[in-house]
Design a protein around this nucleic acid. Sequence first.
DNA 1: TCTCGATATTAACCTAAGTATATATCATCA
DNA 2: TGATGATATATACTTAGGTTAATATCGAGA
Lengths: 235, 235
Amino acid sequence: MVRKLETHAALSEDDRRALMALPYTLRVYEPSSYLVREGDAPEQCAVLLSGFAYRQKQTGSGMRQIVSLHIPGEPLDFQHLFLDVADHNVQTLTRAEIATISRVALRELARSRASIGHAIFVNTLVEASIFREWILNIGRRDARSRLAHFLCEFAIRLDMQGVVDASGYELPMSQEQLGDALGLTAVHVNRTIKSLEADGLISRNRRRISFPRWEALRELADFSSRYLHLTQQAS
Amino acid sequence: MVRKLETHAALSEDDRRALMALPYTLRVYEPSSYLVREGDAPEQCAVLLSGFAYRQKQTGSGMRQIVSLHIPGEPLDFQHLFLDVADHNVQTLTRAEIATISRVALRELARSRASIGHAIFVNTLVEASIFREWILNIGRRDARSRLAHFLCEFAIRLDMQGVVDASGYELPMSQEQLGDALGLTAVHVNRTIKSLEADGLISRNRRRISFPRWEALRELADFSSRYLHLTQQAS
DNA sequence: TCTCGATATTAACCTAAGTATATATCATCA
DNA sequence: TGATGATATATACTTAGGTTAATATCGAGA
């Protein structure tokens, strides 16, 4: 599980063993638990085994912006691995099972084993690429495309990670949180979801979403998976 | 110059010599020249010696979003150092002097000299942190705060890099481009600049901007420099 | 089964920001 | 020195999305 994430970037040989050998602590967190708080000096490095999590920042006036979303199998703290103080918050979205590794030990491993360091680096580069796409999405797409893009990204990522069948998935968040991720209000998220549904681009049952017209949705979303770097080869 | 950028992250000893020893090509680019195009397989790694540059992505319908801005002394291609295909465009903003290093050589150096690899990693982590702040800025702040935040960030970064005296600076971009960076239209950028000016928060002469009431501006902008990780220590 | 808190949905109304277009300013260059 | 193209500024009007608040729905307990 710890190395499942490494695979997407650059397969290593038997330094998997080294990764697996890292001492870790397993713990289950309740929804909305903080894993990292802005201002903290990060000591540990968390990996999401099950459940969902997100990164979040807040404005002085208390507006929240979700800055990224994380699915089972993804590491949560590479962004702070070499930084002294956290610049954002990391929180669980749902109840989540999390493995915690010592930050120093991981850094040591990254330094001593080049291929592991490389894999971690690639992982953070892909994350950065997703940040860029989110900037584009929030800055330049209207609510319908923006939401559609978000849904497409989530679908593809879940699919890649093998967490879900292609038919659809259970959105692990409220419309309020969806708004925080998209830079919209909950009310407008609701309007927009309804509008996509009315056009038959998605269908829903409670939070379960499926995609009766995937191609049409993808087109509306202006979605291309290039920025996810799915085909990234080891090197 | 090449290693000036490394300093902000984690000073290395005499592997500066190794960096300096990298063969490079010097070239001057005209404004708006493409350095990297989305879809390309990056071969070279550019460092901005003078002038300004930015990263940019476009929507299917042709809307542009500037995703980051770069000032003299900053490396431009670490984001693609270990990725096979570019996910965004890099362009000069002004006429710019650029040193080009072979990507393979730099990767080799990053691998063989841990402290250089580390410095590069820290640099990309800080860039990622800036991406996150931009997501917050675009997603959750209104036009006045958003523009003010942008101006503050630019001021601080220029100041840190020693490019400018604290009194103010010459904005190297049109209001159109400012809009592309902020997720606004040029018209609204103009309104917003005028409004900040009317309130005495900035003063202008053509594109030269100065800050008669820095503290007030910074407060309006909800700006805290934490996310720039200015105090990042070597480790 | 009933209650409660969290979500979701809806409606009415408001405003920040977009659109469209005209005009002014400025730097460049023939 | 006058023309030209790129910016910047201004104005009128429209609209996507925000605000507020009321109502409906649902799952978890008691």
